[in-house]
Design a protein around this nucleic acid. Structure first.
Length: 478
DNA sequence: TGTGCCGGGCG
DNA sequence: CGCCCGGCACA
């Protein structure tokens, strides 16, 4: 759907101004450019839309939007569209925001966007979305606190997909956990809307808040992982986050810029994201155990893999919705597995970038109870060995021209994904054990069709430069 | 056997 | 660097 594109875009556009990178081969991609371009500025609006949660936030958004909008200030009209989109997406794309790198498949062209920009976006949106989600949630039947009430047309409200809601029981289960660990957490600060029962209110709030964030968190691991895992640790709480934020920045310049950036922007969010539960999307297609962290991702997966739709169109008729379900995953458990692999680092498989030591500590120690709360989830997770437990796919072209998506796939084997990891692991030498990818191993071939296949030899000029040079495809990353 | 892309060479 | 391509690993 376009909405997706937009969303994704937003991320891109946001950070960089969304230059449609087709610059690559000007004119070659013409056909697609229009679409992309169109969406490219859309982002801005979306972005800020999502962000809104506190009045102040809104303001910020505006600023950003305008500035970022790269001159295209879409104007109200667009904005509205965006809103719709966003909301809508809540359902399909979900709060995702995610990471979805603009899936090249779905939205060609989007793939290669501005490098850094795209990345950062992804991350960022998630958070925003999370917030967004929060704001919406209320609308869905709960009290809406003040700030939340945004000028969102009620009509937008969406889709009570069973997905989010379903988690209620789980939430409660988790509540205890969360409660204990979160007592100190800033999460509480966040104005959440919850039906409220006097006694339970506190944790519920927390829960809902975190939950929402996690939900929106489908954006996946990068950020969520990090923050999520941190949940349980008392000592950690705010400090940890901040500290980790800082370190994050220092960490990896390149890739992380995006990520770190994300955090920086998201700032408030990380703190909120205490909950260790993460919503994942599981493909229900027979024999397909694919679990992705983003609804968009799963949709895309279903669309392309099972429904046989092709990449070119981002369009979604919604059919995918029938083939995947939302599940909650205890990130702690995931992390645990991951962390177990590496004492000092978030693990290879783990959330790539950012985790600086401080955080890792937390994660390491904390994840003990692991799967306790989620049966199905846990089962899923438990199936895989720690190393494989969580498969995070980093979809990004190596240089980041493409927005990347990190999806957590359980059951999938974590492959080397060297290039990506390299960056990630830089900081954590110890990770090696888990990383068989190590150096020297070849990057596993991506499943996605590459330019060659997509365009064929005849249209070689339409290939991305990398493909033309026989390098790793930048357009269709996996 | 086709494809993806690493590694290396050339300008 | 940008551009190619030999050649290898995979599927």
């Amino acid at each position: 759907m376009e909405s997706k594109c937009i969303l994704e875009k937003s991320s891109v556009g946001t950070s960089v101004g969304g230059v449609v990178d087709f610059n690559y081969r000007p004119g070659r991609y013409n056909s697609r450019v229009p679409a992309v371009a169109k969406s490219s500025f859309t982002p801005g609006p979306i972005f800020y839309k999502c962000v809104t949660d506190g009045g102040s936030t809104a303001a910020v958004k505006n600023e950003r939007t305008s500035s970022v909008g790269s001159g295209h200030s879409p104007g109200v009209g667009i904005l509205q569209n965006v809103e719709k989109t966003v909301i809508r997406d809540q359902k399909d794309i979900g709060s995702t925001g995610i990471l979805k790198r603009a899936s090249p498949t779905l939205c060609l062209g989007m793939g290669r966007q501005l490098p850094g920009s795209s990345i950062s976006l992804d991350i960022r949106n998630p958070g925003k979305q999370a917030e967004l989600a929060n704001s919406f949630r209320p609308a869905q039947g709960q009290n809406v606190p003040q700030a939340e009430i945004q000028p969102l047309p009620s009509s937008h409200i969406p889709v009570p997909r069973n997905r989010n809601p379903s988690g209620h029981a789980d939430k409660e289960v988790m509540a205890a956990t969360v409660l204990t660990s979160l007592s100190t957490s800033p999460l509480v600060l966040y104005p959440s809307s919850v039906p409220t029962e006097p006694a339970s209110k506190t944790w519920k709030e927390v829960l809902s808040t975190s939950y929402s964030s996690s939900t929106s968190g489908n954006w996946s691991w990068d950020a969520s992982d990090q923050s999520v895992p941190s949940t349980p640790s008392p000592p950690l709480s705010k400090d940890a986050n901040t500290g980790f934020l800082h370190s994050a920045q220092g960490d990896d310049a390149s890739e992380d810029v995006s990520e770190s950036t994300h955090f920086m922007f998201e700032d408030p969010i990380p703190r909120k994201r205490k909950n260790s539960m993460k919503v994942m999307f599981k493909c229900l297609w027979k024999n397909c155990e694919k679990v992705l962290s983003t609804s968009s991702g799963i949709q895309r997966h279903i669309r392309t893999v099972h429904l046989g739709r092709n990449s070119d169109s981002d369009y979604s008729d919604g059919e995918e919705d029938f083939y995947y379900s939302e599940i909650e995953v205890n990130m702690d458990s995931l992390t645990e597995g991951l962390s177990s692999l590496t004492p000092t680092s978030p693990t290879t498989a783990g959330p790539p970038p950012i985790f600086p030591p401080p955080l890792s500590d937390v994660s390491r120690t904390e994840y003990v109870g692991v799967n306790g709360s989620q049966s199905h989830t846990s089962s899923l997770l438990s199936q895989s060995a720690p190393s494989t437990l969580c498969h995070i796919r980093t979809d990004h072209a190596y240089q980041g021209p493409v927005t990347h998506v990190r999806t957590v796939c359980i059951g999938e084997k974590r492959q080397p994904a060297i290039g990506t990891h390299a960056a990630v692991n830089k900081n954590h030498p110890l990770v090696t054990p888990a990383t068989k990818s190590a150096a020297g191993t070849r990057k596993p071939r991506g499943e996605a069709k590459k330019c060659r296949k997509v365009y064929g030899m005849e249209k070689r000029d339409m290939w991305c430069t990398a493909c033309r040079w026989k390098k790793a495809c930048q357009r269709f990353t996996d």
